[in-house]
Amino acid sequence: MTQPYLKFEQIGMRFRRRQVSTEVLRDIDLTIAKGEFVSLIGHSGCGKSTLLNILGGLLQSTTGEVFLEGKVVDTPGPDRAIVFQNHSLLPWLTVYGNVAIAVDKVFGSTKSRTERHGWVMHNLELVQMAQAKDKRPHEISGGMKQRVGIARALAMQPKVLLMDEPFGALDALTRAHLQDSVMEIHARLGNTVMMITHDVDEAVLLSDRVVMMTNGPSATIGEVLAIDLPRPRRRLELATDAEYARCRAAILGFLYARHRVPARAAA
């Protein structure tokens, strides 16, 4: 048997605040194949970001290990580039500068100056932001900032692209544009992607598999749903697709029938 590309093995996470220790995650087991697009869905506060940040190396799990290509993940690194929910662009750098700071660091020793410039521009073109390269973050819209965040992450040529509710703060129309862009890029580059969302349609539209998490505390993986819809997917056609409707219903059923937000977690 070949070793899995990405593997979460018995991940557990406890946070200690003063004397109180809460178990946020327990017994997370998941394997992800190369090139797969996996979405993580669950109610707010169940621990999705925590799990993503463990994969990103920004948090250390209390128990268990994450393996990427057989190697234990324990520090942050460009092979697991993250698209943050609030874009996290550096406001004193231009759009170009925000991508270049990553490219210069990651490829400083392997690419020449001209190659790096070309690579920055290539990635900005990929997200259709090349013509705004000299603008600063406060001069562009939220959707454009998120595009730059995606370009910065893609430019690191990550083994896995991590996205934490990348479109959560955007209006519906901008969000649809960006979802289409992400699908297109995924089709072209074949990245392995792990994305957090709490939008059921977004999860079904983009993913190969949707991982549904139970409510916290002590959240774990409740169900994994494979989305067998052919690609390229078009949102208008899917609106009337029976398989799409079935997947959607399955996720909604999980989230709202079996794992309704408990009253105490709503606080």
């Binding site: 943050f84 004193w92 700071i101 660091k105």
Partner: peptide, 29 residues
Amino acid sequence: IPQDYRNVAAVIRLSWWEVFWKITLPASV
């Protein structure tokens, strides 16, 4: 300095010195 900026620095693995010049100083200007 927002944790986000520190996270960005951690992901691209800036050295202590690079964090100082490229993140800390400009962010606190």
